[in-house]
Design a protein around this nucleic acid. Structure first.
Lengths: 224, 224
DNA sequence: GACTGTTTCAAACGATCGATTAACACTTAA
DNA sequence: TTAAGTGTTAATCGATCGTTTGAAACAGTC
C-alpha cells in the first residue's frame, strides 16, 4: 500500500484533505477554508458537494471506514458449530484474528499519512462518537464483535454471554488501548519508536489473551 | 461524595463550568461566553483570571487531575523487595490496585456530573494530549505505572522490563478501554445501564489480569 | 452556434469567536 | 480624604467561521 497519489477529481481530493485535517485538529478545530486549500479547491465546494461541513465530515468518516478493508476478509468464516475440531479451529481463529487485527488495523502503513489519519479519526470517533456517525461506527464494528464472540464461545462454552463479552472486551481493550495511547506510551518508555519488534508484540497479545481467557493449553507454567 | 454545591468565588466557578463544557464539546467546540454563562460570570474574566481561554483550559485540567485523589493513597507502599511473603503481598497489591482503580477512577460517582466530566476530559487528554498538558498528564500517570510495575516484577521476576511493560499495558488497557468505550459498549449490548454488577466486573478484570499475567494460582482450570 | 446543466470561482454575508477596553464598585492604605 | 489596587461589567475590536450568491468556465446536445 504505497502513499497513494492525490486523486484528480475535486470531490475525492476534498475528502482526503478533510480526513487529514479533521484527524490533526478535530472537527471544530478545522476550518473548511483550510481543508479546501489542502485540496487545492474552493471552499464553496464543500457546501456544493457535501451540503456543508458536517456532510463532508460524515463522508470522510465513511471513506475512512470503508478504506480499511476489514482484516476479517482473510480469515475463515466464523466457525462450524459443533463440528469435530471446532475447538482447535476457534483457537487458531482467535490467534489469526488478533494477528490480523494488530498488523492490518493498528500498524497499517505508518509511511502513508492518510492511513495514520484514518486511524486517528476512527479512534476519536470510537471514544466519543458524533451523533450522526454512531450508526456508521456500529456497522463497522459489528462483524469484528461477532467473529470474536464466536471464537470465544467455542473456547469457553461454560461461560454465559455476559462473561464472554467481558472476555472479548479485555482482549480487544488491551490492543486498542495500546494503539490509542501510543503517544503517552512512547513518552513513558522514553522511546519514540517503541514497538520495535512487531512480532514480539503480537505474540504477547496472543499469549496474554489466551491465558486470560482461560485456555489451558496456553498456560504452560511460567515455571515457579 | 455528594454532588458538590457550586463554589462561591468566581474563579472556581469558571473552572467548574469549564470542566463541564470542555468535556461536553471539546476545547475548540466550546466558547468562553458559554463557559462564563455557566458560571454566571462575565466572559472577560476568563482573560483576567487565566490569561485567556487556553489558560483556563490548563487550569481546568490541573483541577481535574488533582480532584481525583489518587486511589493509590489507600494502598500499602509499593512493596518490600525480597522480603518473605513479598510475592503474596504483590499478588494482593495487584488485586487491590485493580479494585481501587476501577471503583474510584472508573465509576467515580455517576450522579455527580462534574466527576463524569472530569473522566471524559482525562480520557480525551490521554488519547491525544494537548501540547501544554502532556507534562501534567505524565506526572499524574507516573505513580500508577510505578506501583503496577513493582507488583508485576515481583510476580514475574523471570520477565525482562519490556515484557513486564506489555503486561502492564494489557492489564491497564482492558480497564481503560472499557471505561472509554462505555458508550459504544452499551450500544452493542443494547443496555444503557450495562455494568449493572460492579463487583462481577471487578472480579473479571482481576481474574483475567492474573491469568494473563501467568500467575499459576489464578488458573484453577475452567474445567475441560 | 445557441441552449442546458454541471462544476468552479471570487466576493461577500451575517454570525460568532477570543481578546481588549474603559468605566464602575469596592476594599485597603496612606 | 485621597490614592491605589482588585474584581467585575457592558461594549466593542478585528479576525475568522460556515454559508450564500452571481457569474465565469466547461461539457454535452440539438
Amino acid at each position: 500500500m504505497a502513499p497513494s497519489p492525490p486523486p484528480q477529481d475535486t470531490r475525492s481530493r476534498l475528502i482526503e484533505s478533510a480526513i487529514l485535517h479533521f484527524a490533526a485538529k478535530g472537527y471544530d478545530g478545522t476550518g473548511i477554508r483550510e481543508i479546501a486549500k489542502g485540496a487545492k479547491a474552493n471552499s464553496a465546494l464543500v457546501t456544493y458537494h457535501f451540503c456543508g461541513k458536517e456532510g463532508l465530515f460524515l463522508e470522510a468518516l465513511k471513506a475512512v471506514f470503508s478504506r480499511k478493508t476489514s482484516p476479517l476478509t482473510g480469515l475463515q468464516p466464523p466457525l462450524p458449530a459443533d463440528a469435530p475440531g471446532a475447538r482447535q479451529a476457534a483457537l487458531e481463529g482467535l490467534q489469526a484474528y488478533l494477528r490480523a487485527f494488530i498488523t492490518e488495523l493498528m500498524f497499517c502503513d505508518a509511511r502513508d499519512p492518510l492511513d495514520e489519519a484514518a486511524m486517528v479519526l476512527m479512534a476519536r470517533e470510537m471514544q466519543s462518537p458524533s451523533e450522526a456517525a454512531a450508526p456508521v461506527l456500529m456497522a463497522h464494528i459489528e462483524p469484528y464483535v461477532t467473529y470474536l464472540m464466536a471464537c470465544l464461545s467455542q473456547l469457553r462454552p461454560d461461560l454465559d454471554e455476559e462473561a464472554l463479552f467481558l472476555m472479548g472486551n479485555s482482549i480487544q481493550g488491551q490492543v486498542l488501548h495500546f494503539r490509542n495511547s501510543l503517544g503517552i506510551i512512547r513518552l513513558l518508555r522514553g522511546n519514540p519508536a517503541f514497538p520495535e519488534n512487531l512480532e514480539k508484540l503480537i505474540q504477547h497479545f496472543i499469549d496474554f489473551s489466551l491465558r486470560g481467557l482461560g485456555v489451558p493449553e496456553a498456560f504452560p507454567q511460567p515455571r515457579n
